[in-house]
Computed example of a mutant assay.
Amino acid sequence: MASAAFEEIVEDFEFLEDWEDRYRHVIDLGKAMDPLDDALKVPATKVDGCASQVWLHPNIENGVLNFDGDSDAMIVRGLIAVLRKLYNGLALADVLAVDARAELGRLGLNDHLSAQRSNGLRAMIERVREVAAAQA
Protein backbone atom coordinates (compact mmCIF):
# COMPACT_ATOMS: atom_id res chain seq x y z
CA MET A 1 0.00 0.00 0.00
CA ALA A 2 3.07 2.25 -0.05
CA SER A 3 3.26 5.23 -2.37
CA ALA A 4 5.49 5.29 -5.44
CA ALA A 5 7.75 7.81 -3.68
CA PHE A 6 8.24 5.40 -0.79
CA GLU A 7 8.97 2.55 -3.22
CA GLU A 8 11.82 4.68 -4.57
CA ILE A 9 13.34 4.79 -1.08
CA VAL A 10 12.98 1.01 -0.82
CA GLU A 11 14.82 0.65 -4.15
CA ASP A 12 17.54 3.08 -3.02
CA PHE A 13 18.02 1.08 0.17
CA GLU A 14 18.47 -2.12 -1.84
CA PHE A 15 21.52 -0.55 -3.52
CA LEU A 16 23.03 0.67 -0.25
CA GLU A 17 24.88 -2.28 1.20
CA ASP A 18 25.56 -1.28 4.79
CA TRP A 19 23.52 0.49 7.41
CA GLU A 20 25.96 3.42 7.63
CA ASP A 21 25.15 4.30 4.00
CA ARG A 22 21.43 3.89 4.63
CA TYR A 23 21.63 6.06 7.74
CA ARG A 24 23.44 8.73 5.72
CA HIS A 25 20.78 8.49 3.00
CA VAL A 26 18.00 9.08 5.55
CA ILE A 27 19.87 12.15 6.82
CA ASP A 28 20.29 13.40 3.24
CA LEU A 29 16.54 13.04 2.67
CA GLY A 30 16.00 15.25 5.71
CA LYS A 31 18.52 17.82 4.53
CA ALA A 32 16.69 18.03 1.18
CA MET A 33 13.40 19.01 2.86
CA ASP A 34 12.45 22.65 3.10
CA PRO A 35 12.52 23.84 6.71
CA LEU A 36 9.19 24.27 8.45
CA ASP A 37 8.27 27.91 8.92
CA ASP A 38 8.96 28.95 12.52
CA ALA A 39 5.37 30.24 12.75
CA LEU A 40 4.21 26.61 12.39
CA LYS A 41 6.43 25.36 15.22
CA VAL A 42 3.73 25.71 17.85
CA PRO A 43 2.41 23.40 20.59
CA ALA A 44 -0.40 22.19 18.30
CA THR A 45 2.09 20.83 15.75
CA LYS A 46 4.65 19.53 18.26
CA VAL A 47 4.83 15.76 18.59
CA ASP A 48 5.14 14.48 22.14
CA GLY A 49 7.03 11.27 22.82
CA CYS A 50 10.12 12.20 20.82
CA ALA A 51 13.53 12.70 22.43
CA SER A 52 14.17 15.61 20.06
CA GLN A 53 11.95 18.51 19.07
CA VAL A 54 9.53 17.41 16.31
CA TRP A 55 6.77 19.29 14.54
CA LEU A 56 4.34 17.92 11.95
CA HIS A 57 2.06 20.29 10.07
CA PRO A 58 -0.72 18.51 8.14
CA ASN A 59 -2.53 19.89 5.12
CA ILE A 60 -5.65 18.06 3.97
CA GLU A 61 -7.21 19.04 0.69
CA ASN A 62 -9.99 17.15 -1.06
CA GLY A 63 -9.55 14.21 1.31
CA VAL A 64 -5.82 13.88 0.53
CA LEU A 65 -3.15 14.17 3.22
CA ASN A 66 0.11 16.04 2.84
CA PHE A 67 2.27 17.19 5.70
CA ASP A 68 5.45 19.07 6.31
CA GLY A 69 7.65 18.65 9.32
CA ASP A 70 10.86 19.55 11.02
CA SER A 71 13.13 18.50 13.85
CA ASP A 72 16.21 19.75 15.61
CA ALA A 73 17.87 16.34 15.06
CA MET A 74 19.14 15.46 11.58
CA ILE A 75 18.23 11.75 11.72
CA VAL A 76 14.72 12.60 12.93
CA ARG A 77 14.38 15.15 10.13
CA GLY A 78 15.30 12.31 7.78
CA LEU A 79 12.68 10.05 9.36
CA ILE A 80 10.10 12.80 8.77
CA ALA A 81 11.17 12.85 5.12
CA VAL A 82 10.69 9.06 4.93
CA LEU A 83 7.21 9.35 6.50
CA ARG A 84 6.32 12.09 4.02
CA LYS A 85 7.26 9.72 1.19
CA LEU A 86 5.13 7.03 2.81
CA TYR A 87 2.01 9.11 3.42
CA ASN A 88 1.93 12.32 1.37
CA GLY A 89 -0.55 12.28 -1.47
CA LEU A 90 -2.64 9.44 -0.05
CA ALA A 91 -6.38 9.63 0.51
CA LEU A 92 -7.25 9.70 4.21
CA ALA A 93 -8.67 6.17 4.14
CA ASP A 94 -5.47 4.93 2.52
CA VAL A 95 -3.36 6.64 5.20
CA LEU A 96 -5.23 4.62 7.81
CA ALA A 97 -4.74 1.41 5.81
CA VAL A 98 -0.94 1.75 5.61
CA ASP A 99 0.91 -0.67 7.88
CA ALA A 100 3.74 1.75 8.65
CA ARG A 101 5.62 -0.73 10.83
CA ALA A 102 5.72 -3.30 8.01
CA GLU A 103 6.60 -0.71 5.37
CA LEU A 104 9.40 0.80 7.46
CA GLY A 105 10.53 -2.73 8.26
CA ARG A 106 11.29 -3.14 4.56
CA LEU A 107 13.97 -0.48 5.09
CA GLY A 108 15.37 -2.19 8.16
CA LEU A 109 14.63 0.85 10.29
CA ASN A 110 13.06 -1.23 13.05
CA ASP A 111 16.38 -2.98 13.64
CA HIS A 112 18.70 0.02 13.48
CA LEU A 113 17.09 2.80 15.49
CA SER A 114 17.66 3.34 19.18
CA ALA A 115 14.73 2.71 21.51
CA GLN A 116 14.21 6.47 21.89
CA ARG A 117 14.21 7.03 18.12
CA SER A 118 11.84 4.09 17.64
CA ASN A 119 9.46 5.55 20.21
CA GLY A 120 9.64 8.94 18.50
CA LEU A 121 8.98 7.37 15.11
CA ARG A 122 5.92 5.60 16.54
CA ALA A 123 4.72 8.91 17.99
CA MET A 124 5.04 10.58 14.57
CA ILE A 125 3.15 7.75 12.88
CA GLU A 126 0.41 7.97 15.51
CA ARG A 127 0.10 11.72 14.95
CA VAL A 128 -0.31 11.22 11.19
CA ARG A 129 -2.90 8.51 11.78
CA GLU A 130 -4.78 10.66 14.33
CA VAL A 131 -4.97 13.56 11.89
CA ALA A 132 -6.20 11.28 9.11
CA ALA A 133 -8.77 9.59 11.37
CA ALA A 134 -10.12 12.93 12.62
CA GLN A 135 -10.63 14.17 9.05
CA ALA A 136 -11.80 10.93 7.42
Rank of each mutant, 00 (worst) to 15 (best):
Met1Leu: 14
Met1Tyr: 14
Met1Lys: 04
Ala2Leu: 05
Ala2Met: 15
Ala5Pro: 02
Ala5Phe: 04
Phe6Ser: 03
Glu7Cys: 10
Glu7Pro: 10
Glu7Thr: 13
Glu8Met: 14
Ile9Met: 05
Val10Cys: 12
Glu11His: 09
Glu11Val: 00
Glu11Lys: 06
Glu11Pro: 06
Phe13Ile: 02
Phe15Cys: 02
Phe15Met: 01
Leu16Glu: 12
Leu16Val: 13
Glu17Leu: 09
Glu17Ser: 14
Asp18Tyr: 13
Asp18Val: 15
Trp19Gln: 11
Asp21Ile: 10
Tyr23Val: 02
Arg24Phe: 05
His25Met: 01
Asp28Phe: 02
Met33Lys: 08
Pro35Arg: 14
Ala39Asn: 13
Ala39Ile: 08
Val42Gln: 14
Val42Asp: 12
Ala44Cys: 09
Thr45Gln: 07
Val47Arg: 08
Gly49Cys: 05
Gly49Glu: 03
Gly49Val: 03
Gly49Ser: 04
Ala51Asn: 04
Gln53Met: 10
Gln53Tyr: 12
Gln53Asp: 12
Val54Met: 10
Val54Asn: 04
Trp55Met: 00
Trp55Val: 06
Pro58Leu: 09
Pro58Phe: 14
Ile60His: 07
Ile60Leu: 13
Ile60Pro: 05
Glu61Asn: 08
Glu61Ser: 08
Asn66Ile: 02
Phe67Tyr: 01
Asp70Glu: 15
Asp72Tyr: 03
Asp72Thr: 06
Asp72Gly: 10
Ala73His: 08
Ala73Phe: 13
Met74Asn: 11
Met74Cys: 02
Met74Thr: 03
Met74Ala: 09
Ile75Phe: 07
Val76Glu: 03
Leu83Thr: 00
Tyr87Trp: 05
Gly89Lys: 08
Asp94Gln: 08
Asp94Arg: 02
Val95Gly: 08
Val95Trp: 12
Leu96Ser: 11
Ala102Thr: 14
Ala102Val: 15
Glu103Ile: 00
Leu104Gln: 06
Arg106Lys: 11
Leu107Arg: 08
Leu109Ala: 10
Asn110Thr: 14
Asn110Ser: 15
Asp111Arg: 11
Leu113His: 07
Leu113Lys: 12
Ala115Leu: 12
Ala115Ile: 13
Ala115Arg: 04
Gln116Trp: 01
Gln116Ile: 03
Ser118Trp: 05
Gly120Arg: 06
Gly120Tyr: 09
Arg122Ser: 09
Arg122Leu: 15
Ala123Leu: 06
Glu126Ala: 11
Glu130Lys: 05
Val131Met: 13
Val131Leu: 05
Ala134Leu: 08
Gln135Asp: 15
Ala136Leu: 10
